[in-house]
Amino acid sequence: MTLFAVTRLELRRLFVRPLGWIIGALALAELGWRFALLLQIFLLNQVRLAALPDGPGYTDLVAVRVLSSFITGSPLPFGLIELALLLVPLLTMSTLASERSAGTLPLLFASGLSAARILLGKYLAVLIWLALWLALALAIPMSLAHGATLDWGKLVAATLGTFLALAVLGAIGVACSAFASHPAVAAVAALMVGLALTCINLGAQLAGVSNGFINWLAMNTHEETLLRGLVSSADIVWFLLAIAVALLLGIQRLAADRERG
């Protein structure tokens, strides 16, 4: 299938560029640091926590919190999702913007590929890279799985939530790359959209409002539920809708390239 040919091509481009490796390595180093701090806090409080009925364990206080800072509430280094807000735009910025600036985008059109196949093929490559990144990040807390009691259900829900959040950020990044004529512009645009999607309900939360459209619109609302171990179809639908909207906008822009030249 030609869609997978685009995916293979994009994966090759992602893996030979040093930026992808640097982003991955720095992020994992930072997550390792966060993990060490979380583990230290957990060990300091372990005796007290053990005395609590249904008290939080290793999964709640370390494993899930490596993935996101949303529910940490302490001044620790970023979790995976917060890092992704900053780093995914750097990863996705070149997917289409650099094709446009290098003049290789017309080559893809001239191979008989539709705009949808080109964009979805590239998005799939980004998703594979992000899934690999998530797997490596998860390996950090999982390294102690043999000596700790893990709440597998909660961890799976949190992993699903994190993957969906990464998928949304990846879709926004690819869509911004489809709109931009230069990779740097695509990165800045994706960063701003990602931040807006995360912080849009900040005012409402400060005012003590925890429902309504503005809260529904924010990614945090849906992410937090999954990080707490609750898988709700309404939250999954929100993520899928966000991905679909971003990809459809990107496809439309790419199709317009062929129309407008």
């Binding site: 030609t2 040919a5 091509l9 481009r13 290098a102 003049g103 290789t104 080559l107 590929l113």
Partner: peptide, 28 residues
């Protein structure tokens, strides 16, 4: 159809062989 655009745009990260493989795969 085979097309050589003006200036022969290429993917700089790919080798010559990978270019040909990519073009072939894009064409099925």
């Amino acid at each position: 159809l085979g097309w050589l655009p003006e200036g022969a745009p290429l993917w700089p990260e790919l080798t010559v062989r990978e270019h040909l493989d990519a073009h072939g795969q894009l064409r099925g």
